[in-house]
């Protein structure tokens, strides 16, 4: 059936299998956390599982597989890995600030930051409030 997979030596097949299953398993756990956790600021931590070692595992496995089945060194995957590493913090930071300003009502750079976080903790305790 698929002939390219049979070219891979056994040790590499085991390494690739472990890397890929670990990566996608961590991504699945991240998504599970996204559903199970109760407040927004808890949930913001969940997808980082998928973007850190989740992506790294799948990309390393893919690079290894295509290097062994192709005839040259394949390091395309490092570009995606680097892209994920540098873009995830940017999106999460902007999203976090957006959530802060939407929650607190005040701008995040208020004179007294303690009052904002106090309000936030109250909001977190509320859990799944249906405010939009």
């Amino acid at each position: 059936m698929t002939s390219h997979l049979a070219q891979v030596p056994l040790w590499a097949a085991i390494v690739i299998a472990v890397l890929v299953v670990l990566g996608s398993g961590l991504t699945l756990l991240g998504a599970l956390g996204l559903v199970r956790l109760s407040s927004f600021f808890d949930r913001i931590h969940a997808p980082t599982l998928g973007t850190s070692w989740g992506t790294a595992g799948v990309m390393l496995g893919s690079a290894l597989l295509f290097t062994l089945t192709g005839d040259r060194l394949v390091i395309h995957e490092i570009v995606i890995g680097a892209l994920m590493m540098t873009t995830t913090p940017v999106t999460l930071m902007i999203l976090g600030r957006a959530a802060l300003s939407r929650n607190g009502g005040a701008r995040p750079r208020a004179a007294n930051p303690a009052s904002i976080t106090a309000g936030l903790d109250a909001d977190a305790a509320e859990g799944g409030s249906d405010r939009r």
Binding site: A13, I16, A17, V20, V21, S24, G25, T27, L28, A31
Partner: peptide
């Protein structure tokens, strides 16, 4: 042998990712 291992692992990981989606 390695084909079986890889097919199982890749299918499993596809299932995980679809579930995550």
């Amino acid at each position: 042998m390695s084909e079986t291992i890889l097919t199982v692992a890749l299918t499993l990981s596809q299932l995980c990712l679809v579930l995550a989606m």
